[in-house]
Amino acid sequence: MKKLIIWVVMQFLYRGMKVLYKDDSRIKEELDGWKQDKVLTLQVMHGPSITIKYTYQKGLQKVKNVEPDICITFKSIQTALLVFTGMMSVKSAYLEHRFSLKGDVFESMRFVRCVDLVETYLFPRFMTKRILNHQEKKYKSTIITYIKTLFA
């Protein structure tokens, strides 16, 4: 059951980021700031994974069997569940060495900032107050973002 929850949240995170890439200029700026097209894998050891490719021409898309430039691997299903359900911040998980990072740290932080913005839109305020350092401004309605994310 935990693996299914993590997989669903990964899909929703990807779709939310894809929608907000068009609707929130901060996400577009972060991803467009990468020095070149990037492939990022988000995975859980012995669990689900998602590989996302970003190109200047096509934006975000899911891909398979591509070597990532950046790979974030959660060391346990329990940690991934805590992070993906908003019970633990990415920052806390990083500080506690609960995931490993392969690739450029600076460029991976661009992705983490995008995740923080997506969480601002998709998680209720009481959750984001606990896991984010500060509340980001929303430029679109949460309801509209959810609807677009469901159909992305």
Rank of each mutant, 00 (worst) to 15 (best):
105 V>N: 09
100 S>R: 11
105 V>A: 09
107 E>S: 10
127 M>S: 08
97 H>T: 09
132 L>G: 08
101 L>F: 04
128 T>E: 03
121 Y>H: 03
115 V>F: 11
94 Y>M: 14
111 F>S: 01
126 F>V: 12
107 E>C: 00
100 S>T: 15
115 V>D: 03
118 V>F: 04
137 K>M: 07
117 L>V: 11
132 L>A: 02
97 H>V: 06
112 V>S: 06
139 Y>D: 05
128 T>F: 02
118 V>R: 02
139 Y>P: 09
121 Y>D: 04
99 F>A: 04
108 S>R: 04
132 L>E: 12
104 D>K: 00
107 E>G: 01
127 M>D: 08
109 M>I: 06
123 F>T: 01
120 T>M: 10
108 S>H: 13
115 V>A: 04
113 R>A: 03
110 R>V: 07
101 L>H: 07
109 M>D: 11
139 Y>A: 10
122 L>S: 02
105 V>M: 06
125 R>M: 12
123 F>A: 04
130 R>K: 15
131 I>Y: 10
110 R>T: 10
136 E>C: 03
97 H>N: 15
125 R>C: 03
108 S>V: 04
98 R>F: 11
110 R>S: 01
130 R>Q: 15
109 M>T: 08
98 R>T: 00
99 F>L: 05
96 E>R: 14
111 F>N: 03
119 E>K: 14
107 E>Y: 07
132 L>C: 06
139 Y>S: 00
135 Q>W: 07
95 L>T: 08
133 N>F: 14
133 N>C: 09
128 T>S: 03
112 V>K: 11
139 Y>K: 07
129 K>C: 13
121 Y>P: 01
134 H>E: 15
127 M>R: 13
133 N>M: 13
127 M>N: 05
134 H>Q: 13
94 Y>T: 09
108 S>Q: 12
102 K>M: 02
97 H>W: 07
106 F>V: 11
122 L>K: 01
112 V>W: 08
94 Y>V: 10
127 M>T: 15
129 K>V: 08
